[in-house]
Design a protein around this nucleic acid. Structure first.
Lengths: 126, 126
DNA sequence: CAGTATCCTTAAAGATACTG
DNA sequence: CAGTATCTTTAAGGATACTG
């Protein structure tokens, strides 16, 4: 045991990348472009927490989405490593979707955006 | 003093809003729409940390931006309460921009997105 | 200096129909 | 069930010129 009170198996030094205004903006924009499709966020919030849903489940719980858009957004989320797609070879076909481990980590990041939005009221009390 | 070990001047209970997948998605999308203009993020990252810049300063430090786009994005950021605009009545005109207190709070939220992006490598080591 | 005003281009999304 | 394929609409952004 070390002499500190810290967790013995503390994570590595957590060296952060260095950013300029430009590179920070570029990297945040990259995140946005991963997430900003018309239906991506609803899809993600339905999958957060380890949920596994079929194409038809998503179709049912997201009102207003078309098959074209659902498929398109899922393809992009999959290509970007945020969502995982599993095809079960059977008839009729069964395909389901879940978050990747990295995708799941999005949750706290989006939550801090929500916290920021909630903060607005406190600053707008005139 | 209370019988707990908590900080005496602890912040209010911090009751969080309750979200469904749909409302969470809507609220995050609202954040995105505040931030997703073509040049907004570069502008913000140049203003973070209390910096105060003139229109022409921003024009100089953001390569490629046109006056039209700079003015447009600034107008929206101002209308959304993220940036503050001050007009000094003098000739030639002098206008400067800074973050609002609420806008400044964006910094940690965007930082957690950057952290998420940095995480990607750790998960993609195959 | 700090902007507007116009015109043009182009991607994203919607509607709809079809299929292994 | 789980998708594609087409066609059309629309809004964001770029280029360029002008102004109090």
């Amino acid at each position: 045991m070390t002499s500190t009170h810290q967790n013995v198996s503390a994570p590595p030094p957590a060296e952060r990348k260095a950013y300029t205004p430009l590179t920070a903006a570029i990297d945040v924009e990259a995140c946005f472009s991963l997430l900003e499709g018309r239906w991506k966020l609803v899809i993600l919030f339905h999958l957060f927490g380890g949920k596994v849903l079929r194409f038809s489940d998503l179709e049912k719980c997201i009102t207003g989405i078309s098959q074209k858009m659902l498929a398109q957004q899922l393809r992009r989320l999959e290509a970007d490593g945020i969502v995982e797609r599993t095809v079960h070879s059977q008839v009729p076909p069964r395909v389901d979707y879940r978050m990747t481990p990295w995708g799941q980590q999005l949750c706290p990041a989006l939550d801090s955006l929500l916290k920021w939005a909630e903060l607005r009221e406190q600053y707008s009390i005139q």
